[in-house]
Every structure is written in structure tokens, then in C-alpha cells.
Simulated scan of single mutants.
Amino acid sequence: MRKNEVNKKTRLKKESMFTRCKRKLIPAVAGSFMACNLMMTTCFAVSATSAVTQPLDNLKTLVIAVIGAVGVIILAKNVMEFAQAYQQQDSSTMNSALKGIVAGVMMAGISSVLTFLGF
């Protein structure tokens, strides 16, 4: 054997297992990391959410419109009840009609309030 081959064998024996593993592992990990970075693709979902949220927005608009319509009906009914109670001087019916008027106004105005708040 030559002298260089003997020195190489003794040097390999002296190297620790960690050093040999490090010498092979670091280039492999770095190469795979670079390959992953090169293969990455950015994906943007621009209008995919509207397909999901559009039916919910339609349902919300429908429910708010129904509540507003029922509120107008309750308001009209209680205004007529208040007028009859005022004509008959019936204070308990007047109080009940006033509560109904307030409830009708609240229900009729809920759509504009929610629109103002951004719902």
C-alpha cells in the first residue's frame, strides 16, 4: 500500500461518526431545501369566498326584510288600537297599544339600523 492510502485510512478512522454524517447530510438537506423553494407556487383565491357567502347574504337580507315588513304591520295595528283606546278613554289598552307601537317601530327600523351598522 502506498503512504497516502494508509494516511487516508487512519484519517477515516479518526473522524467521528458525526463528522462523516455531517459531511453527507448537510449537502443533501440543503439541496432538498432549494428544490422545495423552487417548486413553491403562490395561489390566490380572489372570488372563491363570494360563492360561499352570497347565499348567506341573501338569506340575511330576506330575514331582515321579513322582520321589517312584520314590524310595519304591527305598527299599523297598534296605531289603530291606540286610536280606539283613546276614543274610549281606556288607559290600559292605550298602554298596551303604545308598547306595540314602540315594538313595531323597532322592528320596522331594524333594517335601516343594521344597514347603518354595516351588517
Rank of each mutant, 00 (worst) to 15 (best):
L38Q: 00
G68H: 04
S32L: 14
T42H: 07
K22C: 10
S111T: 07
C36W: 08
A35V: 11
M80K: 09
S16W: 01
C36Y: 12
V52Q: 09
A65F: 13
A85H: 00
F116L: 14
A108M: 12
K99F: 11
M107F: 09
I64T: 08
T41N: 03
L59H: 06
L56R: 09
N95F: 05
I67S: 01
V6M: 13
L56K: 10
Q84V: 00
M34C: 13
S111P: 03
A97F: 00
N37A: 03
I110C: 04
A85Q: 00
M34V: 13
I74M: 03
N4C: 08
V66T: 07
E81V: 01
L98Y: 01
L62F: 09
A48T: 09
I101S: 04
L56G: 06
P27M: 07
K22E: 10
S47M: 06
A108H: 04
L59M: 14
I64H: 01
E15V: 03
K13V: 15
T19Y: 10
A76H: 11
K60A: 09
S47T: 08
A30E: 06
R20T: 12
Q88H: 09
D57Q: 11
A45M: 12
Q84R: 07
S16C: 07
S50Q: 10
M39A: 08
V79L: 07
M40E: 07
K14F: 15
M107A: 14
L25A: 15
N4S: 14
M17L: 15
L75N: 02
V105D: 04
A51R: 08
V113L: 15
T49V: 08
T42W: 06
G104C: 02
L56I: 12
G31Q: 03
P55D: 07
N95Q: 11
A108L: 06
K60Q: 04
I67F: 02
T61P: 02
A103E: 14
R20M: 15
Q84M: 03
K3E: 15
L114V: 07
T42C: 03
C43I: 12
G118R: 02
A83W: 06
L12I: 08
S91L: 00
S112L: 11
C36K: 06
A108T: 09
I110H: 01
A103T: 08
G118W: 11
T41G: 00
D57I: 04
K60G: 06
L59N: 13
M80T: 09
V66L: 13
N95K: 05
Q88L: 11
